[in-house]
């Protein structure tokens, strides 16, 4: 049997029957990443300016200069080291060529099928069955798989999951998602620092002349700082579910067989997490399946992934 199925440029969303152009999708991911970098830049400047108004308006230029410098630094770190940070946060270690030979072999085979370079393979010592891909482009990419997933899945199922992760690499989802994780992470740290300093600082200054303006500015500042991480994750959520469906569909084209992925998803749907392993919110959206879904159902705007059942249903209709 000769397979003449060309790797498709378009994938049809089986539910909305909408055609998705994979090249345009990739371009969009790169564009989103630029927009994100610009968003960080503007946000830092606005915050610096607000801080300057409150504390010392004559130093505003100086504050803004520092903010620009920090924003550029933040973007550089997010772009070049976002993958390292994500892997570190997930406590992933490089795969052992002897012990995890099986995983390395499967990934190599899938990378042959896509024509992409072989990503670096990492293993997370965790009972929660999961996997994620990160990096900035196919040449600098990594796939991390948990030991729980390796135990739960057979070869064909694992192939499906790796192909799904490989699709994220191919479509440049990894670039945007990793930069988003790094950005949201930095904003969360900033918010926490700010909240702490605010609590500490409010005990001292209590002059009432400039108080009203100050209070308003503080309020804007707090709202901005509290909202920005939430905004960041909502921005991501708006596109993430289609991203997962798309990666599922692309994975089927890579493996030319939906059964492995379907059966992997079925096993994950039935998996009940009895451990008490901490789940890091910052990288939740990177995972193959939402780690929190193993504990309780998360629905609506805050679900990082479409329900597994829905993903299975869509795969079956391909």
């Amino acid at each position: 049997m000769i397979k003449k199925t060309e790797y498709p440029r378009y994938i049809t969303d089986t539910k909305t029957t909408q055609k998705i152009d994979l090249l345009a999708w990739k371009a969009a991911n790169i564009r989103y990443s630029y927009i994100l970098g610009f968003f960080v830049f503007v946000l830092f400047i606005v915050i610096a300016y607000l801080i300057a108004i409150v504390s010392s308006p004559e130093l505003a230029i100086f504050y803004i200069a520092i903010a620009m410098f920090l924003a550029i630094g933040q973007n550089i770190v997010a772009y070049w080291f976002g993958d390292d940070i994500a892997l570190k946060v997930a406590k992933a270690r490089p795969a052992n060529k002897d012990e995890e030979r099986y995983l390395v072999n499967i990934t190599e085979a899938i990378s042959f099928g896509t024509g992409l370079p072989m990503p670096k393979i990492y293993v997370m010592d965790s009972a929660l069955p999961n996997a994620f891909a990160t990096g900035r482009n196919p040449k600098h990419s990594a796939i991390a798989v948990s030991t729980g997933l390796l135990e739960l899945l057979d070869r064909q199922e694992l192939e499906g999951v790796i192909a799904h992760e490989m699709s994220h690499i191919k479509n440049y989802d990894i670039l945007f998602l990793t930069m988003l994780a790094a950005t949201v992470g930095a904003l969360v740290i900033m918010r926490d620092l700010f909240m702490r300093s605010l609590r500490y600082g409010s005990r001292r200054s209590n002059k009432s002349d400039k108080g009203q303006i100050e209070a308003v500015v503080y309020l804007i500042l707090i709202v901005l700082l509290i909202l920005s991480p939430i905004l960041g994750s909502l921005l991501h959520l708006a596109v993430s579910r289609r991203r997962e469906y798309l990666a599922d569909a692309t994975a089927v084209y890579i493996t030319r067989n939906p059964d492995g992925l379907i059966s992997a998803l079925e096993k994950l749907a039935n998996f009940k997490d009895t451990s008490n392993e901490p789940i890091n919110d910052g990288i939740r959206h990177l995972y193959f399946a939402d780690p929190k879904s193993f504990r309780r159902q998360i629905k609506g705007a805050f679900a990082t992934h479409p329900p597994i059942e829905e993903r299975i249903a869509r795969l079956k209709s391909i």
Partner: peptide
């Protein structure tokens, strides 16, 4: 790996 490489080759 040969199977996947062939698939890519044919593409």
């Amino acid at each position: 790996k040969i199977a996947y490489s062939r698939q890519f080759y044919n593409d």
